[in-house]
Design a protein around this nucleic acid. Sequence first.
DNA 1: CAAACAATTAAACAATTGTTCAATTGTCCA
DNA 2: TGGACAATTGAACAATTGTTTAATTGTTTG
Lengths: 99, 99
Amino acid sequence: MNSTFLDEHTAAHVAELFRSFSDTSRVRILSAIIEQESNTSTIAELLDLTESAVSHHLRWLRQMRIVQARRDGKEVYYSVIDPHIIALFQQGVNHVKEK
Amino acid sequence: MNSTFLDEHTAAHVAELFRSFSDTSRVRILSAIIEQESNTSTIAELLDLTESAVSHHLRWLRQMRIVQARRDGKEVYYSVIDPHIIALFQQGVNHVKEK
DNA sequence: CAAACAATTAAACAATTGTTCAATTGTCCA
DNA sequence: TGGACAATTGAACAATTGTTTAATTGTTTG
């Protein structure tokens, strides 16, 4: 169906996309907000990370359009919008779990 | 169906898996050998990389059990065995292409 | 308005990563 | 066996990345 042979430019974008899921903290953050929309400090507390570290990762994911931010008063709530992204992430998780 | 909330250990493995696809050269190498089983120097020539660089990446991918090596005389041919891995990779590629 | 809380940002740092160069190993065949 | 070719390996390096600390911005409420 689809050829996978990629030009350098597309390959760079694919790599960038997968880089979203290539760090332990980012994977944990994503798993948390896929499970339930949460704000920065709740995520930080839940995962035992500093708010700053979480915020840096979320900025990265925001720039990649992986996560969506919604402010409610002082808090900013994050979630994963795109079902394709969730499916991609889940597929990686399942692969690991089924070993 | 499946909860995605992950313990640190599983998250680390998931991150490690996705790291296989998180570098432009590795993405290009994978796209080449998914398209067609190839040996190190053919891949190097096709992608304009040194054989050493290609070999280093392939070692990484081999250790991750993403690729399979088959020696035929002087040449070592690489391929991606697991259809789940191919599907995961393709899904990332499609996500990028559909933007 | 000021104090308190939530989140972001910038700078700095240690750690990791990708690539190169050079040396080595494995295989074939004259 | 020795020379040629293919691939791997190790060491070194520059570049990138994740985290911390400290300062700053945004928002609410006393």
